[in-house]
């Protein structure tokens, strides 16, 4: 869970100072680094999907790919998050979450920040208010309260059945981390929708576009998913996907996640997997539903393949990551 132990940054120090002032009994946690979820709620899984290009899932050589292929993407969208345990109040974790998202537009082959919507950057305190004494000087109401310079997010809100989370510190910490996750998703969706509303050029989005109905319906939002916790293939189709060679894609299928929007999707092998893991260089691409999935999938695949240069090294995910997304992440790292 603990990734690193850097010294507290200025935001953490400010939050700790406030907490000690407004929450007597709170103690600082020294040397806490950025936190990640210790476990995912859902296990890796295989799900069958509806094929919309042909009847069976097959490998398709992406046509027209050569070194002169020009990418049609005009911009890149990504978000980042930092979760830091900054203190405790008798065992109750006090978490500072920093979320950010930005669109970087390509101008003359260089990436610059989109001028129509500034990058999003938010710092919030994630507190299980139920298990803490009443905060003095707390303003506002509900889950979005203002505490000094920080907004407060209540991580102890009861679920749909009305049950409060356990007071177990690990449970509370994981709820805080999920809340930060959701916050980052919200920022990304906000920017994606703003971009789609202007309809300037196709947007390369790091991750799924199914969360936002607007993005999922826009021809200008293309999601590229690097992680394959869920594989939308089973049986022979799975073998086809893991056997994809460099420059090949799978047939287009439809993804319909629960409580999310349906989109068309396919797998695309960006790099030669020889000597690597079967998922090496494999991404899943999402686009809005359309009437000509073959032509559209070929075109977008060419764009995605064109974005494999320059390499996203030294990022460890360089086999699947485009340089544009790495640029957004570096930009967000610089401002957050």
């Amino acid at each position: 869970m603990l990734v690193s132990s850097p010294s507290p940054d200025s935001a953490s120090r400010a939050a700790i100072r406030l907490l000690k002032e407004w929450l007597p009994g709170a103690s600082a946690v020294e040397g806490s680094g950025d936190l990640e979820l210790s476990s995912r709620a859902d296990q890796p899984q295989l799900i069958s999907a509806e094929i919309v290009e042909g009847k069976t899932l097959r490998a398709v050589k992406v046509p027209g790919v050569d070194r002169t292929t020009i990418s049609g993407f005009g911009a890149f969208l990504d978000g980042t998050q930092k979760v830091r345990l900054i203190g405790r109040h008798y065992g109750v974790p006090i978490v500072l979450g920093t979320t950010s998202a930005a669109v970087r537009v390509r101008v003359n082959r260089r990436l610059v920040t989109w001028g129509h919507q500034p990058p999003r950057l938010e710092r919030k305190l994630y507190l299980p208010l139920k298990y803490l004494p009443p905060l003095t000087e707390t303003l506002g109401a509900g889950s979005q309260r203002k505490y000094g310079q920080f907004q407060v997010v209540d991580t102890s809100i009861p679920d749909a059945s009305g049950a409060y989370p356990s007071e177990h510190p690990t449970v509370l910490l994981e709820r805080a981390i999920r809340a930060v996750d959701r916050q980052r998703d919200a920022l990304e969706d906000e920017l994606a929708e703003a971009w789609c509303a202007r309809g300037e050029a196709p947007l390369f989005i790091d991750g799924s576009i199914t969360r936002s109905p607007h993005a999922a319906a826009s021809a200008n939002a293309i999601g590229v998913i690097k992680s394959h916790f869920t594989l939308y293939v089973e049986g022979e189709a799975l073998r086809t996907v893991v056997g994809l060679a460099k420059g090949e894609r799978s047939s287009v299928f439809q993804v319909t996640p629960k409580s999310r929007s349906a989109v068309m999707s396919w797998y695309l092998r960006q790099r030669d997997p020889e000597g690597h893991d079967v998922l090496w260089g494999l991404v899943r691409v999402e686009m809005s539903r359309c009437d000509n999935p073959t032509e559209r999938a070929d075109e977008i695949s060419r764009w995605v393949l064109a974005e494999t240069s320059p390499l996203a090294l030294p990022d460890g995910r360089w086999d699947k990551m485009s340089y544009g997304i790495r640029d957004v992440e570096e930009f967000l790292r610089a401002i957050s």
């Binding site: 390509r106 082959r109 240069s309 320059p310």
Partner: peptide, 19 residues
């Protein structure tokens, strides 16, 4: 070098220039 398959001429076709 790896990113351009060892061919300097390929670099000119990259969609984005490095920061």
């Amino acid at each position: 070098v790896l990113g351009h398959d060892g061919l300097p001429t390929m670099a000119g076709y990259a969609a984005t220039e490095r920061a």
